[in-house]
């Protein structure tokens, strides 16, 4: 990989860590240990279910909030504070900057998710006192969550490349919500006719589709995940993130930095 992209990525990561992003881990740890102790005491045969559901949902939500709130500022904040001027006046191409920022944020989230995953497994061990084979499925759910983060990061970055942080946050968050109901949107499209149908289908394929990424509940019930789904989701996340990044590069490449 291009060395400059690596430098930009590692600087982004360092900024995020110094900005106390990882403090969310404390909140996460409190939430999870509290829940584990609580369900451990009431013992109603669903402790594992609760810990897995709650833990993975928290991993997902914490990560999405971080992805959006850091992602939206990645480009616009650098423009606003003019830190970008000193970067782009060096032999750094604009696309390298965007791609570097993306990897920096994605790296932050991966590290963050790694620590949260340890927390989930620890809480699980606390309530179940042992690990079983089916617990490996949690890794798949975590992997899907990380894939979801990649998509959100790329979208936040895309919006950040042309819009203000507040608007970017609104856009990114709306797309996250819409994306979670993307399947319903495709269903609607299938029921419509004529032009509406074309537009709705187009929109349904353009917005990110998160429905297939959410396997938390099925994993909590120890339902296996099809190997094909893992492949499909991986490819989808990579393609989608690459698409949003290309859009960000296209916009940023032509932007006048006032």
């Amino acid at each position: 990989m291009n060395a400059r992209i690596g430098h930009i990525a590692s600087n982004t990561f360092r900024e995020a860590v110094r900005d106390r992003v990882l403090y969310n881990l404390i909140a996460f740890a409190v939430l999870l240990s509290g829940a584990a102790i609580l369900v451990g005491q009431i013992s109603i045969d669903i402790e594992k279910l609760v810990v897995i559901n709650l833990g993975l949902t928290a991993v997902s939500l914490f990560g999405i909030v971080i992805a959006i709130f850091i992602g939206i500022g990645l480009v616009s904040k650098e423009i606003e504070k003019r830190t970008l001027y000193t970067v782009l006046s060096r032999p750094v191409r604009r696309w390298e900057f965007i791609v570097g920022k993306f990897f920096g944020l994605a790296g932050t989230l991966v590290v963050n998710t790694f620590f949260m995953a340890i927390g989930v497994f620890a809480a699980l061990f606390y309530v179940a006192h042992k690990f079983v084979r089916a617990d490996a499925l949690i890794l798949i759910a975590l992997y899907f969550i990380v894939l979801e983060f990649l998509i959100i990061c790329s979208l936040a970055l895309l919006f950040s490349s042309f819009s203000s942080p507040l608007l970017s946050a609104v856009f990114a968050f709306s797309l996250f919500v819409i994306g979670s109901f993307a399947e319903d949107l495709r269903g609607f499209a299938g029921m419509a006719h004529g032009l509406t149908r074309w537009l709705a289908t187009g929109a349904a394929y353009l917005v990110p589709n998160f429905s297939a990424f959410n396997v938390i509940s099925s994993i909590a019930h120890e339902q296996p995940v099809a190997a094909q789904l893992i492949w499909h989701n991986t490819l989808y996340a990579l393609f989608y993130a690459a698409m949003a990044l290309s859009g960000a590069v296209l916009i940023f490449e032509h932007r006048n930095l006032k």
Partner: peptide
């Protein structure tokens, strides 16, 4: 390319 590929993948997922 990525838009097309993501749509195809999504279709496959369905």
């Amino acid at each position: 390319f990525c838009l097309a590929a993501s749509a195809v993948t999504l279709h496959g997922t369905d």
